[in-house]
Design a protein around this nucleic acid. Sequence first.
DNA 1: ATATTTGTTATATTTATAATATAACAATGC
DNA 2: GCATTGTTATATTATAAATATAACAAATAT
Lengths: 132, 132
Amino acid sequence: MLVRIDFSSDEAFYVQLKNQIIMGIATSEIREGESLPSVRDLAEDIGINMHTVNKAYSILKQEGYLKLDRRKGAVVCLDADRLRTIEEIRFLLKGTVAKALCRDISKTELHELLDEVFEEFNGIRKASGTGR
Amino acid sequence: MLVRIDFSSDEAFYVQLKNQIIMGIATSEIREGESLPSVRDLAEDIGINMHTVNKAYSILKQEGYLKLDRRKGAVVCLDADRLRTIEEIRFLLKGTVAKALCRDISKTELHELLDEVFEEFNGIRKASGTGR
DNA sequence: ATATTTGTTATATTTATAATATAACAATGC
DNA sequence: GCATTGTTATATTATAAATATAACAAATAT
C-alpha cells in the first residue's frame, strides 16, 4: 500500500502515517488479515525513522486496527468494541457540526456532504468478498 | 462565556481554547458582534499565559471567526468564504467516514449519529434573533 | 545449526513546538 | 495624563517529536 509523508506538513509524521493506514483500510487498499511492511522496511521506504513507524503501529494496535504478530508482522485486525468507536465518531461529528453551524451550513447540507464523501469512498474502494 | 482548560490533557492549551470558542459560537453562547475578554483578562481567568490566549485569538482571526478591533477587542465576526469552509468540512468528514468504514458502521448509522449531534446542539443553543 | 528478520524495549541526543516571562509600542478610551 | 487595548519582540523553560544506536527473544530462512 502506498504511503507518502509530507515533510513540510505541520502534522507529526506518526500521525500522518497512522491516518493514511486507516484510510488504506477504509478503502480496502489493505484488507483484514493482510500485513503491513515491517517497521524497518516501511521506515526505509518512506524516509523516516524506524521508531516513528513503530509509534504509529503501536497506536494503531492500541486503537484496535492492527495486531502485531511476530511471524506475520503488523496484521490488519479490526476488533475494537463498537460502542467506543461510536463515541469517538460522535465526538468527531460534534466538532464538525460546530464549525458548520458557525458558517450557516445547514443540517441538510451536512447530510449531503456526508453522502458525497461516501460516494467518494465507494469510487475508491475495491471489490471485496467480505462485504466491508 | 465559560472556558476551562484541562491542564492534564494532551491537547495544547491554545487548541483547547480555540475549540471551546468555536463551540461557544456554535451554541450561540457568544454571538456575532459580541466581544471576548481581552487576552490579558482571559489569560488571568483561566490560569494560562497571555501569549497562549493571543495565539488562539490570532488563529481564530486567520480562520475567520474573529475580528480583532482595538476598541472592542476580539469581536466574533464570521466572514470566511463558504467554499473553503465546505472543503474543510469535507476533509473532516473524510476522516470520520474512514474510521466508520473500518468499524462496519453504515452510512445510515452515520446519518443517524449526525442527527443526534444536531439534536444535542439544538438542546444547548439559545434562542436568537438572527436565525443562526 | 547458523544467519537473518521480526517486534520490542532501552537509552541518548537533537530538533521542534508549546508555554511562560518581561518588555515595549502605537492606538484607543476614560 | 493614564490605563487598557492588540501586537510584536526576545528570551527561557518544558514537553514532545524525531532520530540514532544498540540490544533481546522469538520466528523464519537458508
